[in-house]
Amino acid sequence: MQYENPKIPEGINVTKVHPLKTFAILVSGLLVMLLVGAWLLGFGGGYLASKIPYSQEQRIADSYEGDAGLEQTELLRYLQALADKLSQQMNLEDGMDITIHYVDEGVDNAFATIGGHIFLYRGLLEKLPHENALAMLVAHEIAHVKHRDPIVSIGRGAAISVGMKLLLGDASPSLLGNAGLLTQMRFGRDMETKADQAGLVAVNTIYGGVTGALALFEILDGIEDNGLVKSPEFLSTHPASENRLDELREIANRNGWSMDNTPVPFPEFFNRSLLLR
């Protein structure tokens, strides 16, 4: 019989690539596509949201009215007056009203959200030494409102979550739920830096120096140090306070702003009101 059975070289029907290598290439390709997609969606959503008229933004934010107890205490009147003074200084657009809400919780936090609502927590206020530091904090949050950061942030978040919903088929049921508006507010680091600078300008104009303003960042730095885990700067949206402090000092130096002015103390009732509750 004339048939023979030669030995065929091994592996000729299989592409010689390590499966883990293929896996790494494909997965990283997919991740890059997802990240670029999310970035584009976020950018587009943020851009579109910045075109929403402020009056509409206020209408969306109406749900906050009253929820933080707009009971007119001496403390709240004082905080509101400070905010009004700062917002006048910061040339807010017509119709951009700032509403201060005081939250009686021991959290070291303060944030601005849509519709010009600024929430200040007792925990952070207790740590502030004088009015100048408080003014810097409020001015920083007003600057967020002025730059339309809250609505841009919501626009970004909404666009990304719609994208994820389309891609994954399901996501959280409420895209613009109240919880999302309040807690998922994330500002980019550039937003924070710009807000710092705008706030510093306002505080310097009103108080004739930046001493107290810089004190705020020293306090924030202390709060960070007390935290159990200190996240590295690239993970966090807020620039590390030491870096912020250096940057702001440099700005003050460049502009020749006074850094040894005497801070204005809090009015006599301030600490009492904090303790009272």
Partner: peptide, 17 residues
């Protein structure tokens, strides 16, 4: 899993070869 990724990107489905 690898084949599903190949399904997305195209190309040889090496994991099935």
């Amino acid at each position: 899993f690898l084949a599903a990724l190949h399904n997305f990107f195209g190309g040889r489905v090496t994991s099935y070869e």
